[in-house]
Simulated scan of single mutants.
Amino acid sequence: MLIRMEIPVDAPGIDSLLKRAFNRDREAALVRAMREDGLLTLGVVATDDEGEVIGYAAYCPVWIDGEDHQWVALAPLAVDGAWRGQGIGRRLVYEGLDTLNEFGYSAVVTLGDPAWFNRFGFEPAARWQLRTSWPGTEAALQLFQLAESALDGVSGEISWPAPFAVTDR
């Protein structure tokens, strides 16, 4: 297995994985739209020995009260059902965090299971008066600080790129 940044030839495999993992097209359509609109900050893939995509993590820009603070969101994150429970999701998250840190980003947010994301150092974003416009996401909104100054003077509503508006949260 190999964990690496996505390359253009991975797009069909990513699309297929997302459809299988979520049993619908919504997440695959989201990634296609972000890629087409130049909103995919980083894509990290896990491939098997034959080069098939078996895991994927996408990162895109987010804004706080309309301002760019060099933050990104992790969404979606998927691992093929046959490969779950082997630490691939963890490796995708860590590879993404390491790469984003090297690129100079300040923070990463995600909507996900707090118990799962807390293992990686994510914390409830509500602690810093951060929220989304989507009802019922308060507990799921998690934050990972890449830079010590990430939260200096930052609070408010986190907004995702336009393709997320059609994902019907």
Rank of each mutant, 00 (worst) to 15 (best):
A11E: 03
I14F: 01
D15V: 07
K19Y: 07
R24W: 03
M34N: 14
R35K: 13
V44E: 00
V45Q: 00
D48M: 05
D49K: 00
D49Y: 01
Y56M: 11
A57L: 12
A58P: 00
A58Y: 00
A58R: 00
A58V: 03
W63V: 06
I64D: 00
D65I: 05
E67A: 15
Q70D: 12
Q70T: 06
W71I: 09
G81A: 14
A82Q: 06
R84G: 10
Q86M: 15
G87I: 09
G89L: 01
R91V: 06
L92W: 00
L92D: 01
V93S: 09
Y94K: 12
D98R: 10
T99G: 06
G104E: 02
Y105I: 03
A107P: 01
V108P: 00
V109H: 05
V109T: 13
P114G: 13
P114A: 06
W116H: 14
G121F: 04
R127L: 15
R127N: 13
T132M: 04
T132V: 03
P135E: 09
E138L: 02
E138P: 11
A139E: 04
A139T: 10
L141M: 07
Q145Y: 14
S149A: 14
D152R: 14
G153P: 01
V154A: 05
V154I: 12
E157G: 07
F164A: 07
V166S: 14
T167C: 11
D168Y: 13
